[in-house]
């Protein structure tokens, strides 16, 4: 669907993107992750034809962004970062204007605006001036703007920034719904968002792709260890060490005390195996009482930090 090859962008001497290549399939939700200044926004801007690349090509459905700009723009809906909309227009007038440019017919237009207003929750603000709106509402208007023509490719730069938690969930649901048939590319630095919505994650750091895959794949490939916390009543440290260190995959056992005095045993584990069953069976053989079992989520956050650390 979208083919990005050797994309490089320089701002003067500053290299914002360095030889990025990426193929995005139809019906995928791709999350672009990266620290501030990693080149996420630049990549999206080139993809949507706002900026031109210093080197490299971008094609979508066989059309080149550089040459068939107008056709590409018809395929795409784009929400730039922080939704920079025309300040002094009414929401309705603005959506109407976008619908006109998107080439919606008079009847279709009214229907589509009503539909988007319902989806994005804009009914109350339809006749208010955009500069009066809160950030969240502006973001919603921006989303409605991007979705106006029901585009095949939806490009969203930090779509949920400034929204309240309820709205974030709603918008994610919308994005997931759209992602079933369309291609969605979104950038964010909210990691839980990527886990919740994206089929595929691309992590960029300093203009380069440092990781690419589903969140599951990323977690698997990560070399970091993880740990299990067990609260065991009536267990001796020595015994625990003996029994549980024997479980394959456990590389170390440590005892700490919890707030209420109950002993917590922290098991260090290596990456690949699922040892929950074995731990359970090992505990069952003794007369310890297992009060708590907590697997420290081998979070995307950790992977992200590892990959994007300043070195």
């Amino acid at each position: 669907m979208i083919e990005i090859s050797n994309l490089t962008k320089y701002y003067g001497d500053l290299c914002a993107l360095d030889q990025i290549s990426l193929t995005i399939e139809k019906g995928n939700i791709l999350g672009l992750l990266g620290p501030n200044g990693a080149g996420k926004t630049t990549a999206l801007r080139i993809l949507t034809g706002y900026l031109s690349a210093t080197e490299g090509t971008v094609t979508a459905k066989g059309l080149s962004v550089e040459k068939d700009t107008l056709e590409i723009k018809k395929l795409m809906g784009y929400l730039p970062e922080s939704a920079p909309l025309y300040q002094n227009m009414l929401v309705f007038d603005y959506l109407n204007y976008v619908a006109d440019i998107r080439g919606l017919g008079t009847e279709q237009k009214g229907e589509r605006i009503r539909e988007l207003s319902r989806i994005c929750g804009l009914d109350e603000v339809m006749h208010r001036s955009i500069h009066e709106l809160s950030k969240g509402y502006k973001q919603r208007v921006g989303l409605a703007h991007a979705m106006m023509s029901d585009p095949e490719i939806l490009v969203l730069d930090e779509p949920t920034s400034g929204l309240d938690p309820n709205q974030i969930v709603e918008i994610r649901d919308i994005i997931k719904e759209i992602g079933k048939e369309k291609t969605v590319i979104l950038s964010t630095h909210i990691l839980s968002e990527v886990e919740a919505t994206c089929d595929r994650v691309v992590i960029i750091n300093q203009g380069k792709i440092v990781a690419d895959g589903s969140t599951q794949e990323l977690k698997k490939s990560s070399t970091s260890e993880y740990s299990l916390n067990l609260v065991l009543q009536g267990a001796e440290e020595r015994e625990v060490r003996e029994k549980l260190a024997a479980v394959g995959g456990v590389t170390g056992v440590e005892k700490t005390a919890a707030d209420d005095g109950a002993p917590i045993f922290t098991l260090k584990c290596d990456t690949y195996r699922d040892i929950r069953g074995e731990i359970y069976r090992a505990v069952k053989q003794t007369d310890w009482v297992l009060l708590e079992y907590k697997q420290e989520a081998k979070s995307l956050e950790k992977i992200f930090r590892e990959l994007t650390k300043e070195n």
Binding site: R45, T48, G49, Y50, L70, K73, K74, M76, Y78, P80, S82, P84, L85, Y86, Q87, V98, I101, R102, G103, H145
Partner: peptide, 10 residues
């Protein structure tokens, strides 16, 4: 910044 929106419309 609305220029970005304007230019990315068809």
């Amino acid at each position: 910044g609305s220029y970005e929106i304007l230019v990315t419309l068809p």
